[in-house]
């Protein structure tokens, strides 16, 4: 869409790949998904992609990363790298939003509310760790858009 953020997935994906197994091992509830329940992100219309992307960047920055601190300093460092990269991407998307090229339709609002409902359906630490473990779902979707 109009708001294609030149985001370096390589750095973020490398950081996530380095901790993915450890993070997903901390998520005992494998039958639930935060991002993909009931519908996959891939069903979102292209006109809603920018808005959903912005919502999800906010979601991870405001709600997820802060509840993922662990006793493992390697994991903490990689989460820091990812979180700071998300801030940088969000700032670029802000510029786009200010030019009104990132409008929010009904579908994106509904989709994001569903993500929040999934998140709030679990205790905060489990929800945050599960969301972090699903980061590759988000990265795959953002890379495809």
């Amino acid at each position: 869409g109009p708001c294609r953020v030149p985001m370096t997935m390589t750095e973020i994906r490398a950081g996530f790949t380095a901790i993915k197994a450890k993070i997903q091992a901390r998520d005992p509830i494998r039958t639930l998904s935060i991002l993909s329940h009931p519908h996959s992100l891939h069903k979102v219309k292209s006109s809603d992609r920018c808005c959903i992307t912005h919502h999800l960047l906010n979601f991870y920055v405001d709600k997820v990363f802060r509840h993922c601190k662990t006793e493992d300093s390697f994991i903490n460092r990689k989460i820091s790298s990812i979180a700071n990269s998300f801030l940088s991407v969000r700032r670029k998307l802000e510029q786009c939003r200010e030019q009104n090229k990132c409008t929010c339709g009904q579908e994106s609002t509904e989709k994001f509310n569903q993500v929040l409902a999934n998140y709030e359906g679990l205790n905060v630490t489990s929800a945050a760790m599960k969301s972090l473990g699903e980061l590759d779902i988000l990265l795959d979707w953002m890379e495809k858009s």
Binding site: V61, F65, R66, N76, S80, A83, N84, L87
Partner: peptide, 13 residues
């Protein structure tokens, strides 16, 4: 990083 300052209670890593 900026994240630690703005969202992480100014923590250091």
């Amino acid at each position: 990083g900026e994240y630690e300052r703005d969202y992480g209670n100014e923590s250091w890593i």
